[in-house]
Design a binder for these strands. Structure first.
Length: 515
DNA sequence: CGGAATGAAAT
DNA sequence: ATTTCATTCCG
């Protein structure tokens, strides 16, 4: 069924049909491809369907979009040149996005950043930067830093305990390097801006992934610093009500401050951290080391499936770890919370799991590896049961290297052999098969469409979207639906053949299993 | 007690 | 600059 057969040729390494074209298209039509995310996205709907309407309209719009309209408030138009990965630069301010309701935060600051230098996104960073060679930060490894490591960091900062990064900070940091490159500038503010713009565009799975990471980060942070408590400086009160001038007893902490030791190394250090950037543990996945640092994800899915692990506490765990109150798995040895399948479904494949066999240049394996939108399997409430090819590749890659069973990951965290040994080897260990290639191709197609909604959307389908639901996935679903011809079959279509693989990856978890 | 405001997290 | 979060503040 599916037009899957249209795969005349595998994905061109050159992104020929990829985003470049899109970029051009966008440049020509200069528009705001993505829906401005409505209101705070706290929960669900993030996009509104303007996208489609607009998109539609734009399609037929002349290259020069109403140049005069909306000079500033909401969304702006702009043109820009296309570049390798569609690099951007809008000539106008980029976004605004904040829906009508200024949240409450003091009305959105005027923002001093010169938007002219701020690129305008046509798609989330996970897609835009998908085939960059610059690795993403190994967030999984990062959030799993051991308590020990964390304490060391604190020492380095002279005792100051920083707050754990939230999901967005993690996200930003994950893509920072790529973003810089994509923007062609190192301006932090621009990076932030772009990240901020991209964040709401990311598919739910992606954001979920970062939320999970944030959760872990928090848990591990707490484990490492049990007594830490975030205490914003007292300054807050002054601002609000007048109060004191600002002397604020610079002693900052004021009396006692029992927390002194934990928080702001009160010791004269204040909150400003020392410029100790000597050897940041930041580890970016070297691309050849790759996946070793995240032995938990896909792998555990296998475990669960094959060994019948369920998420229910009480079941034996594969290694020296135990369940925590929150249901998190805790490893006493490292004092670290470990991510398990119980909390999330099939994980978004976020690691630069390049195929080790390609260590060095990963032309082929890269494309799908990080963008794996990977719509959740089985659709937990998610409309499309879409499965991405990335999973397959992720599997292939990570399992293809028996030799690479490092003892420690890039963060110096022990990687438990148990995990590794538990990993069933996929039936196939060869390079991407034809079918896989086809999948890659489809994926590319998907990406392409995903990033050019206005062109991809068939007017006839517009009605399909549930505007009310305001699902942010709209454009992805769209693209996929269009490709596979239906949500229901999407998954099957994509995974029909690599039986062995689909067995693992294609498994649709039932809710029961997940609970 | 809840919403508003604020600060802090990495670059 | 950005988003999320914990905290505090105030009515």
């Amino acid at each position: 069924m599916v037009s899957s057969t249209m795969m005349t040729q595998g994905p061109s390494p050159d992104d020929e049909y990829g985003l470049d074209a899109i970029a051009q298209h966008n440049a020509i039509h200069s528009t705001e491809q993505f829906p401005p995310y409505e209101e705070d996205a706290k929960g669900l709907g993030i996009y509104n369907d303007d996208l489609f309407h607009d998109g539609q309209a734009y399609i037929h719009n002349p290259p020069t979009p109403r140049s005069g309209t909306a000079s500033e408030g909401v969304r702006t138009r702009s043109g820009r040149s296309a570049r390798r990965t569609d690099s951007p630069f809008s000539t106008s301010k980029s976004r605004v996005s904040k829906s009508p309701a200024p949240r409450s935060k003091k009305d959105k600051k005027p923002s001093k950043l010169d938007k002219s230098k701020t690129p305008k996104l046509t798609a989330p960073l996970s897609i835009l930067t998908k085939d960059m060679e610059v690795p993403m930060k190994d967030m999984d490894g990062w959030v799993h830093r051991s308590a020990e490591t964390r304490r060391k960091e604190v020492e380095k900062r002279n005792g100051y305990v920083t707050r754990p990064m939230n999901s967005f900070m993690l996200y930003r940091s994950c893509y920072a390097e790529r973003t810089k490159q994509w923007c062609l500038q190192n301006n932090h503010q621009v990076v932030s801006s772009v990240s901020g713009e991209s964040w709401p565009m990311e598919p739910e799975e992606v954001r979920n992934q970062f939320n999970e990471w944030a959760k872990l980060e928090r848990a591990n942070h707490a484990a490492a610093h049990p007594e830490y408590k975030f205490s914003p400086s007292k300054a807050s009160s002054k601002r609000k009500k007048g109060e004191f001038s600002d002397d604020e007893d610079d002693a900052s902490e004021v009396d006692g401050d029992p927390d002194g030791e934990y928080r702001g190394g009160s010791r004269s250090v204040r909150q400003k951290r020392m410029a100790n950037h000597s050897a940041p543990p930041v580890a970016y996945l070297p691309s050849n080391v790759g996946f070793d640092s995240h032995p938990y994800y896909a792998q555990q899915q296998y475990e669960q499936q094959q060994y019948g692990y369920t998420s229910e506490p009480g079941r034996p765990l594969p290694s020296n770890v135990g369940y925590e109150q929150n249901g998190l798995v805790f490893n006493p040895q490292t004092g670290t919370y470990v991510h398990t399948t119980m909390q999330t479904h099939p994980q978004y494949n976020y690691m630069p799991t390049e195929d080790p066999r390609n260590s060095g240049n990963l032309r082929v394996s890269t494309p799908s590896s990080m963008t794996g939108v990977h719509q959740t399997l089985g659709g937990y409430g998610l409309p499309g049961t879409n499965i991405r090819t990335d999973d397959l590749f992720a599997t292939t890659s990570r399992t293809g290297t028996p030799a690479m069973q490092a003892q420690y990951n890039s963060y110096g965290q022990p990687v438990y052999p148990q995990y590794q040994s538990y990993t069933p080897q996929p039936a196939y260990q060869t390079l991407p098969s034809q079918q896989q290639q086809q999948q890659m191709y489809e994926h590319a197609q998907y990406l392409q469409q995903a990033s050019q909604p206005q062109a991809a959307i068939d007017p006839a389908l517009a009605g399909v979207f549930d505007e009310a639901a305001g699902r942010e996935q709209s454009y992805f679903d769209e693209a996929i639906g269009d490709l596979a011809g239906g949500d229901q079959y999407a998954g099957m279509e994509f995974f029909e053949e690599p039986a062995s693989a689909s067995q693992h990856m294609g498994h649709v978890w039932s809710r029961a299993e997940l609970q």
